[in-house]
Simulated scan of single mutants.
Amino acid sequence: MAEILTITLNPTVDLSTSTPEVSAGPKLRCTTPLADPGGGGINVSRAIRFLGGHSTAFTAVGGETGALLLRLLAKEGVRFTAFSVTGDTRQSIAVTSEATGEQYRFVMPGPSWSDEMVDTSLTAIRQAAPEGGIVVLSGSQPPGVPLDYPARLSRLLEAAGVQLFLDTSGKPLHELARHPANPFVLRMDDVEAEDLAGRPLPTRADTADFASGLVAGGVARNVIVARGADGSTLATAEGRWHACRPIRPEEVVSAVGAGDSFVGAFCIALSRGDSLHDALCYGTAAASAAVLTAGTQLCTAEDVARLLPGCEVVPL
């Protein structure tokens, strides 16, 4: 099997708690907080671990919060390579109102990077990237990291024969579209796709046409667009497919974690030599499994195995 390296430039220690009611003014007495390692690439590595696979999480860390993050990763059995940065690793806080069930999420920006840290990180990732393997870049970029970082990493890894799976959004995604770097896989959700397209994409065919246009334009060799409860659409140079979620809408507990679970499962499938078509199905089953769990929990291997036979992939 090909080795997998995940990249998290802006990790976080996710704190989650609850209080009887959220209101401005009074002190809100909360339950004992739970701490989890977080950030796009880290959550992908955690999903891979939950599914019985193996990866190494390359993560930037700094200060006491960074040390806590590494301890949490070790506790979960996730292998990691730490890249030291100046400043403290960020924290994120999720507070659930017990009265309404609503969750309030507070996300900090993370430490600011210098140009030297950017250049050093690219060199470190190139050295850590497994030969003939898969690298996943997922999650937000810290302040100071240039918008063309994903494109620079893509070109660097392509020259080394490494497949890059890029899950990005916002300005870095727009930058990649303007200056294509052709990563092996580019993934985005439906909101990000419509923002990039500048128009609604109401049907699967609309999504497939947009994704195919990105492939034809050299933005990425393969493009995946997650359409929420409708599943995910994949476009390649050879064709377009859509994988339907094998669950009913009323079964959904929380949408948090679906994207990271998808990416983790998809990359496991790629690492064992499955086709893109089969990887799409496995990823969709994992995303479906993730929404069956509460809060920030990811997929479970048992749910994925149960849902996988019901995952239908149709050509578009």
Rank of each mutant, 00 (worst) to 15 (best):
G273P: 12
S212T: 13
P309N: 10
F262K: 11
N222H: 15
A255Y: 00
E238H: 10
C267N: 09
P309R: 07
N182Q: 12
E238T: 14
S275Q: 14
P246I: 03
A301R: 15
T236M: 06
G231P: 11
A287F: 02
D195P: 01
L308Q: 09
T203W: 13
V263L: 11
R221D: 15
D260R: 10
C311T: 15
A229N: 04
S271T: 12
V185R: 03
I247T: 12
P183M: 03
E250T: 04
V219A: 03
D278T: 13
A255F: 08
L307F: 06
A208D: 01
A237K: 06
V185H: 03
L196G: 03
I224W: 12
G295Q: 14
C299K: 04
A193I: 07
H179W: 11
A265R: 05
D303E: 15
F184W: 14
C311R: 02
D274R: 13
A294I: 12
V185P: 07
A220N: 05
L307P: 00
H242D: 00
V219D: 05
G217W: 13
A205F: 04
A279N: 09
A290G: 14
S254K: 06
V219R: 09
C244S: 07
G218E: 09
R199F: 06
A229M: 09
D189C: 05
V263D: 10
H242A: 09
D195L: 14
A269H: 06
W241V: 05
P180H: 09
M188Y: 12
R227E: 09
H242R: 07
A216K: 12
T233M: 07
Q297E: 15
A301M: 13
L298K: 04
P180E: 04
D303C: 05
A285E: 07
M188R: 06
A216H: 08
A193Q: 08
A197E: 00
V263Q: 08
R240W: 00
G228Y: 08
R248G: 00
D195I: 11
A193M: 08
S275E: 14
L308G: 03
P202N: 00
S288Y: 01
V304K: 10
G198V: 03
R199N: 00
V225F: 13
